[in-house]
């Protein structure tokens, strides 16, 4: 009897408890532990355990040109990928929002890249981009166009990777925006039409502003993901040629699993964590102001 009343009194705590414990163990602890490791000089190649060195690892990593390049590349990749995805995604959503024959088939086809495994996508695109036996160069050659070296060239590797990301993730933006468009009321559009607004004006001044919060939500989701992109880059180039496609995440991976510099790798990951956090906060602020 006493027991059951205890349960009843504490239902509010007990029900979410498993989730809280889960989050604590699997999310908070790793983050705090990574933070702790970033203040150590743990390096497995020395055969010695971690010892506290304060900000030393931070200074060493931040003064590496390679780190700054990786940071810049992370932003370049993200900005280009997300920009193209949002523009294309919204455009496709607007098209799909109209009634036409074969609409559901088009929606289904659009969904396919989204459900593909990124590593498999990477392997297939590697073959597609291969300068000697790849389909892309073969097609360009057949059309009489100049061939490229794609992911094998330092100059085109980021653009080539952005293309793969766009291929895979544009549908996600489309889906979210499509859901937003479906929820809009028809009245403002009809009112604008009665007032003699052109189709373009309706789109520019009525539809887009109304669906803007949804677009920004989709953008936040994509942005966070794009900043952390690992699978596609790892499967396709591993950060190469040289370090030409090395983003923070790839660099962090190499530092821990190829160089075994656990302390410095943690610094890179803490930096990435902060980058993602600040960017998301920025966009959330933007979203709040657009809602007002």
């Amino acid at each position: 009897m006493i027991q059951s009343s205890f349960t009843e009194r504490n239902l509010r705590v007990l029900f979410p408890l498993p989730a809280i414990v889960f989050i604590g163990l699997l999310m908070v602890f790793p983050i705090l532990y990574t933070l702790y490791l970033s203040f150590t000089n743990w390096n497995l190649t020395s055969g010695m355990g971690p010892s506290f060195v304060g900000l030393d690892s931070y200074l060493r990593v931040f003064s590496e040109p390679r780190f700054l390049h990786a940071l810049g590349r992370t932003f370049t990749f993200t900005v280009f990928a997300v920009a193209v995805e949002v523009v294309l995604g919204v455009a496709i959503a607007l098209i799909l929002n109209r009634a036409f024959v074969g609409k559901s088939l088009a929606k289904l086809l659009l969904l396919l890249p989204l459900v593909a495994t990124p590593i498999a996508v990477g392997i297939v695109f590697n073959l597609f981009y291969d300068p000697t036996i790849g389909l892309l160069n073969f097609t360009l050659d057949a059309l009489g166009l100049p061939q490229g070296r794609w992911i094998s060239s330092e100059n085109t590797v980021i653009a080539s990777l952005v293309m793969v990301d766009v291929w895979q993730w544009t549908p996600m933006i489309t889906l979210i925006v499509l859901a937003g468009l479906a929820g809009l009321s028809e009245e403002p559009v009809e009112a604008a039409r009665v007032d003699g607004a052109s189709e373009w004006q309706i789109l520019r001044y009525v539809t887009i502003p109304m669906v803007m919060p949804v677009i920004l939500t989709a953008m936040i989701l994509r942005l966070i993901d794009a900043l952390k992109t690992f699978d596609i880059i790892f499967a396709m180039t591993g950060g190469g040629p040289g370090y030409a496609s090395e983003t923070l995440n790839i660099m962090g991976f190499k530092y821990s699993f190829e160089y075994f510099r656990i302390g410095q790798s943690s610094v890179i990951l803490v930096a990435l964590f902060l980058v993602v956090l600040l960017c998301s906060l920025g966009i959330m602020k933007l979203r709040e102001s657009s809602e007002k």
Partner: peptide
Amino acid sequence: PKGVTSMSWEN
């Protein structure tokens, strides 16, 4: 071969 700087044996 073209793009040899991104090739290991598996390529």
